[in-house]
């Protein structure tokens, strides 16, 4: 039982996950998950810890293959043409993944090399990407000298460097203070309006969701609801997104709390 969106589905979803089930041993981490995230929009993937968000991200970034269903990035199947799909994807992982000992620029140049971008072009792109997150003045500083929020923004710059059409962010605001959180969210939203990039933003903080966003609620590996915040609120008969989320998650608990692996 999912809330079906009143918005017509986008003509071409930038990210399309259809019928993906994934298990680790006997534990089902994802159970028939389907979702679409369009270009030029903010899609929030909301779920509590352990809901399966990181597993889904691992599959989209092909840390390991999906064994069922399909995952497409701009029409490229991640399993069948991983190189083309990964080249169009920018990722910010939950864990910090910058080299603290190296400078901001060195970190970005390394990433560019991983995408096969030659040194001269890489420098230009890195400077531009740092400009996008207002950190161009820190290019030659060691990452260690940056604040947590700045590191996250460097990671976003890195994710943008190779010109992806879609950005995945796995709980990027974890561990940031309120101010840095605000800056980060504003920056990502600006990318959407200015560059038309698509964003899938995993979070467990419902206050990061704005009225115009699309929301996907993931709970115990299942998609519980999809739609606009207003639709979720209507369904839960409340006017608060956080309360709506808790209600929807609660619905999932009642019928069969422990789902046997499919």
């Amino acid at each position: 039982m999912t809330v079906t969106s009143q918005i017509p589905p986008p003509a071409s979803a930038a990210l399309k996950v259809s019928g993906v089930t994934h298990s680790f041993g006997s534990k089902t981490a994802l159970d028939d998950v389907s979702l679409e995230a369009p270009a030029g929009a903010f899609t929030a993937l909301v779920g509590q810890n352990g809901a399966g968000k990181t597993t889904l991200f691992s599959l989209i970034t092909r840390l390991y293959n999906n064994t069922s269903g399909s995952i497409e990035v701009l029409g490229e199947d991640v399993r069948r043409s991983p190189a083309r799909a990964l080249a169009r994807l920018g990722v910010v992982f939950q864990a910090r993944t910058l080299d603290l000992e190296l400078t901001v620029m060195q970190n970005l140049l390394y990433h560019a090399a991983l995408h096969g971008i030659g040194r001269r072009e890489a420098k230009r792109l890195a400077a531009a990407a740092l400009g996008r997150v207002s950190l161009e003045s820190r290019a030659s500083d060691k990452v260690r000298a940056l604040s947590g929020g700045q590191m996250r923004r460097v990671e976003i710059a890195r994710a943008l460097l190779h010109g992806p059409a879609f950005l995945l962010l796995d709980e990027p605001t974890v561990g940031l203070d309120i101010g840095s959180r605000r800056t980060l969210i504003d920056e990502v939203r600006r990318l959407i309006t200015e560059d038309g990039i698509g964003v899938l933003w995993a979070t467990h903080l419902t206050d990061e969701i704005a009225a115009a966003d699309r929301v996907v609620v993931l709970h115990q590996g299942k998609v519980m609801a999809k739609g606009t915040p207003r639709e979720l609120c209507a369904r839960a008969k409340t006017d608060d997104v956080g309360a709506a989320f808790m209600t929807i998650v609660g619905e999932g608990e009642r019928p069969a709390p422990q789902k046997a692996s499919a």
């Binding site: 270009a39 169009r88 096969g116 971008i117 059409a165 309006t193 560059d195 038309g196």
Partner: peptide
Amino acid sequence: AIADVTARPQREVTAKGY
């Protein structure tokens, strides 16, 4: 702008890239 980003030319995996 939206058309721009999705229609951006694909960066191919080339020998030089390797």
